[in-house]
């Protein structure tokens, strides 16, 4: 059976509800039934730790579960994943989309005035990702068809550079 993994990302804060939701046996069984073989969880500063094994990895119904707090970069974990379940951080969102990964954004309801919701719901409206809450994550995965998500055409930061050059009086005369 080829490796098909799910990556959970909570970023630099903690997101206990999400970690608990993905630690549920019912949820892990669902992932396995959907053909996923690995569940890789980044828990950040969270106090709740997913599996009770000391090594930070365990087996649940064939699904191999691993967790860690932080890594200098998640790039390889993200590249390897087939599905990314993430908090609303814009960095993770755009990195996932640029890697053309199926992405579920879970809104952290404990953060008040969370303007990151704006971005997730906008991109969800445009069909690039799905956004949900910890308590409905199970149903979201159950009904998710990654094939229906639209690829995100990456933007170009150079549009900004061109604009700034004009504003600052570098009238097209490049000095390199």
């Amino acid at each position: 059976m080829s490796k098909k993994s799910v990556l959970v990302v909570v970023g630099t804060t903690k997101f206990e509800d999400l970690i608990k939701a993905v630690s549920e046996k019912r949820f892990q069984k669902l992932l396995f039934s959907k053909g996923y073989t690995h569940l890789n969880i980044q828990i950040g500063h969270g106090e709740y730790t997913p599996a009770n094994s000391e090594s930070g990895s365990g087996r649940e119904e064939g699904l191999i579960v691993d967790w860690f707090r932080f890594k200098p970069t998640l790039a390889s974990d993200m590249t390897e994943a087939s599905l990314i379940i993430s908090h609303g951080g814009s960095g993770t969102i755009f990195e996932s989309l640029s890697l053309r990964k199926a992405l579920i954004v879970v809104i952290n309801e404990t953060l008040m005035n969370n303007h990151q919701t704006e971005l997730a719901s906008r991109l969800a409206k445009d069909g690039h990702l799905v956004y949900t809450f910890s308590k409905s994550l199970y149903e979201t995965i159950e009904t998710l068809d990654p094939g229906t998500l639209k690829p995100y055409e990456q933007g170009q930061p150079s549009l900004f550079a061109d604009h700034l050059d004009k504003l600052m009086g570098f009238n097209g005369d490049k000095t390199d």
């Binding site: 170009q156 930061p157 150079s158 900004f160 550079a161 700034l164 050059d165 600052m168 570098f170 490049k174 000095t175 390199d176």
Partner: peptide, 11 residues
Amino acid sequence: TRLLSSLNKKQ
């Protein structure tokens, strides 16, 4: 960081 990456550092 993304925005800066596109700027001409010599300018």
